[in-house]
Computed example of a mutant assay.
Amino acid sequence: MANLILSERVARGVQSVTFNRPNQRNALSIELLESLCLELNQLEQDQENRVVILGGKGKVFSAGLDLREAADMTLVQRSASAVKQTLSRLRETPLVVIATVHGGAFAGGAGVMAACDIVIAAEDARISFPEARRGLLPALVMEVLRHKVREGDLRELLLLGEPVDAARAQQIGLVQRIVPAAQLRDTAIVVARSVLAGGPETIRQTKALLGVAFAEHESAEEDDLIDLHLAARHSDEAREGLAAFLQKRDPKWP
């Protein structure tokens, strides 16, 4: 399982995690998804780790689910559970996850991409949710997509199943930045360093706050938001951040 995921430290606080099934276009097998969740769990154990740059080896980010497994009725439940767990882990992990998408992200691969906090796409990247064309329902990625894409655009994505280019993906909210393919990794590291400029605990709490704000069947109550805000304002990091701003210096985080 370890060979399905390549993991390396690229800078202090920044870990590169790469899908390693290039010959299968990084199809999301059960073992690959379970390996990704395990890797996130392990990275979370070290408080120094703050950002994950997620990519794919080979010609594409990910072609989607391993359809051979998807067609095996004895594996359907396990496959669906692995997808659901992966999407939840990416959204709920305190680590900030930056997806670097080259070539393409399709179906489940596009869902994994959308579950990341920030998406940087190569200029030639193409993204699609072709589940309807394969007789599948995009039920597991719907919760992720409904918060990122306007209804009309989401209907077009899911009902047509046609690939969109990086520019269109950015226009509808699936992609945040577009760069030449050769600059994907360097750009991701620059973005990661911007994340590192924030207080470690503040960034973790901000991601948790975003999770609450967009949680299914939940709404962030105003009093709860105020309480969270006030708790953060009384933190050591808030004091250091405000002091650094007033003194016109970089904050000194732990």
Score class of each variant (00 low, 15 high):
residue 1 M to T: 12
residue 2 A to T: 12
residue 4 L to Y: 08
residue 5 I to E: 03
residue 5 I to Q: 06
residue 6 L to A: 12
residue 7 S to T: 14
residue 8 E to I: 01
residue 14 V to R: 10
residue 17 V to M: 14
residue 19 F to S: 09
residue 21 R to V: 04
residue 25 R to C: 05
residue 29 S to F: 08
residue 31 E to V: 01
residue 32 L to Q: 05
residue 33 L to T: 05
residue 35 S to V: 03
residue 42 Q to Y: 08
residue 43 L to K: 11
residue 46 D to W: 11
residue 48 E to P: 00
residue 48 E to G: 12
residue 50 R to E: 06
residue 53 I to N: 09
residue 53 I to L: 15
residue 55 G to H: 06
residue 56 G to L: 03
residue 59 K to L: 14
residue 60 V to Q: 10
residue 61 F to D: 09
residue 63 A to T: 14
residue 63 A to Y: 04
residue 66 D to F: 07
residue 69 E to L: 05
residue 73 M to S: 13
residue 75 L to A: 01
residue 76 V to K: 12
residue 80 A to L: 01
residue 80 A to C: 03
residue 81 S to W: 00
residue 85 Q to V: 03
residue 85 Q to E: 10
residue 90 L to V: 02
residue 100 T to K: 11
residue 102 H to Y: 03
residue 103 G to L: 13
residue 104 G to K: 04
residue 108 G to C: 06
residue 109 G to K: 01
residue 112 V to T: 02
residue 112 V to E: 03
residue 113 M to F: 07
residue 117 D to A: 07
residue 117 D to H: 12
residue 120 I to P: 13
residue 121 A to M: 05
residue 122 A to L: 13
residue 124 D to I: 02
residue 125 A to R: 08
residue 128 S to E: 08
residue 129 F to T: 00
residue 130 P to S: 07
residue 131 E to H: 13
residue 133 R to W: 03
residue 133 R to I: 10
residue 134 R to G: 13
residue 135 G to W: 05
residue 135 G to R: 10
residue 136 L to C: 04
residue 136 L to E: 14
residue 140 L to S: 03
residue 141 V to N: 12
residue 143 E to N: 15
residue 143 E to S: 12
residue 148 K to F: 02
residue 155 R to A: 05
residue 156 E to Q: 00
residue 158 L to M: 03
residue 158 L to A: 01
residue 161 G to Q: 08
residue 163 P to V: 04
residue 167 A to D: 12
residue 167 A to F: 11
residue 171 Q to T: 07
residue 172 I to C: 01
residue 173 G to Y: 03
residue 174 L to W: 02
residue 177 R to G: 00
residue 179 V to F: 02
residue 179 V to H: 01
residue 180 P to T: 08
residue 181 A to P: 04
residue 184 L to Q: 07
residue 185 R to T: 05
residue 188 A to G: 10
residue 189 I to H: 06
residue 190 V to W: 02
residue 190 V to A: 09
residue 194 S to W: 06
residue 203 I to H: 04
residue 204 R to M: 11
residue 206 T to R: 09
residue 207 K to C: 13
residue 209 L to S: 08
residue 210 L to T: 08
residue 213 A to C: 11
residue 213 A to V: 10
residue 214 F to P: 00
residue 216 E to W: 05
residue 216 E to L: 09
residue 216 E to P: 11
residue 221 E to S: 14
residue 222 E to W: 15
residue 223 D to P: 03
residue 223 D to H: 13
residue 225 L to G: 09
residue 227 D to M: 05
residue 234 H to E: 14
residue 234 H to V: 04
residue 234 H to I: 05
residue 236 D to T: 09
residue 236 D to R: 14
residue 238 A to T: 03
residue 241 G to S: 15
residue 243 A to Y: 02
residue 244 A to D: 10
residue 248 K to T: 08
residue 252 K to P: 01
residue 253 W to R: 12
